[in-house]
Simulated assay, not measured.
Amino acid sequence: MTGLLRQLGLSKHGAAIYLALLHHGEGTVAEVARNSRLLRPLVYRALPDLVDRGLVGKVLKGKRTCYAALSPERLEDAWEETGRTFREALPKLAEFYATQAGNPKVVVLKGHKGIVAVYEDILRTLPRGGLFYRYSSGANQRKQHYYVPRNYRERRDAKRLERYVITNKMTASRKSPRLERSMKTIPTGSDLFVYNVTQLIYGPKVAFVDYNTETAVIIENPIIAKFQERLFKLLYQRL
């Protein structure tokens, strides 16, 4: 809930105070500090913003000033304002993005989650019925389920993604035939997959996965991707 309030523009401390007031009811600064687990100076600094936003009101009880949370429905206005601000900023953001469109974008990902992110990116990038190309490393086959997102195969098949695969004969022998997968193997004497590295070409992107160090690199550039795609097709035709 704190994350949602922060998306609506509240500070970290402001969100904690507002939630504490909703949960515990009105209170003095000392009580709010205790319930929100914040120091008093932080509460003093955050309260004026909450009052200005109409989320917190002052309640006078004799000589004491208490603070009370007002209706969360007021947050709806903040949400609509955030949406308007975003819509106004979107054309400018798109303009910034367009100026970088010609430059390759390179992302380096580390660890198990980094490799999983590559396969997740394939699902996000390709349209329904899309096609990707893969040099498939045989050394990682025993851990293949470990390196793909949850329900990856179901989601891939639901989008009807087709793939062309070049691998070694041992890996190919472990694969059952599938209509959406075309596979060829390289000659036994020139096995390129002892390095335990996989390359994937999909849409405007090329990804390299090093399973030895659990490092992945995604390069987004249509020209580089097309060049790698043509090299793949040339090798595929020769096998």
Results as ranks from 00 to 15, higher is better:
Thr185Leu: 02
Thr185Met: 05
Thr185Asn: 08
Thr185Glu: 12
Thr185Pro: 04
Thr185Trp: 01
Ile186Ala: 11
Ile186Pro: 00
Pro187Tyr: 06
Pro187Ser: 15
Pro187Leu: 10
Pro187Ala: 14
Pro187Glu: 11
Thr188Asn: 07
Thr188Arg: 10
Thr188His: 07
Thr188Phe: 03
Gly189His: 05
Gly189Thr: 06
Gly189Asp: 07
Gly189Ile: 00
Gly189Glu: 12
Ser190Asn: 12
Ser190Val: 11
Ser190Thr: 14
Asp191Ile: 01
Asp191Asn: 15
Asp191Met: 04
Asp191Trp: 04
Asp191Tyr: 04
Leu192Thr: 06
Leu192Asp: 05
Leu192Trp: 12
Phe193Ser: 06
Phe193Asn: 08
Phe193Arg: 06
Phe193Gln: 06
Phe193Trp: 11
Val194Trp: 09
Val194Arg: 12
Tyr195His: 08
Tyr195Ile: 13
Tyr195Glu: 07
Tyr195Met: 13
Tyr195Trp: 06
Asn196His: 09
Asn196Cys: 13
Asn196Ala: 15
Asn196Asp: 15
Asn196Gln: 09
Val197Asp: 00
Val197Gln: 09
Thr198Ala: 15
Thr198Ser: 15
Thr198Cys: 12
Thr198Trp: 00
Thr198Met: 09
Gln199Asn: 03
Leu200Asp: 03
Leu200Gly: 00
Leu200Ala: 10
Leu200Asn: 05
Leu200Cys: 10
Leu200Trp: 01
Ile201Trp: 09
Ile201Glu: 05
Ile201Ala: 10
Ile201Lys: 04
Ile201Arg: 03
Tyr202Ile: 10
Tyr202Met: 07
Tyr202Gln: 02
Tyr202Asp: 03
Tyr202Arg: 01
Gly203Ile: 12
Gly203Val: 11
Gly203Lys: 06
Pro204Arg: 03
Pro204Asn: 13
Pro204Gln: 05
Pro204Tyr: 10
Pro204His: 09
Pro204Lys: 07
Lys205Ser: 14
Lys205Ala: 11
Lys205Gln: 12
Lys205Met: 11
Lys205Thr: 02
Lys205Asp: 07
Lys205Tyr: 09
Val206Ser: 01
Val206Pro: 01
Val206Ile: 14
Ala207Asp: 02
Ala207Ile: 10
Phe208Arg: 10
Phe208His: 09
Phe208Val: 14
Phe208Ile: 14
Val209Pro: 00
Val209Gln: 02
Val209Glu: 04
Val209Arg: 00
Val209His: 00
Asp210Arg: 01
Tyr211Cys: 11
Tyr211Arg: 05
Asn212Arg: 10
Thr213Trp: 07
Thr213Ala: 14
Thr213Gln: 11
Thr213Asp: 08
Glu214Ile: 14
Glu214Thr: 13
Glu214Gln: 15
Thr215Pro: 01
Thr215Tyr: 04
Thr215Lys: 14
Ala216His: 05
Ala216Pro: 06
Ala216Lys: 04
Val217Pro: 08
Val217Tyr: 05
Val217Asn: 04
Val217Leu: 14
Ile218Gly: 04
Ile218Cys: 08
Ile218Thr: 08
Ile218Tyr: 03
Ile218Ser: 04
Ile219Val: 15
Ile219Glu: 03
Ile219Lys: 02
Ile219Gly: 02
Ile219Pro: 05
Ile219Phe: 08
Ile219Asn: 02
Glu220Lys: 11
Glu220Gly: 04
Glu220Trp: 03
Glu220Ile: 02
Asn221Gly: 02
Asn221Leu: 02
Asn221His: 15
Asn221Arg: 05
Asn221Cys: 12
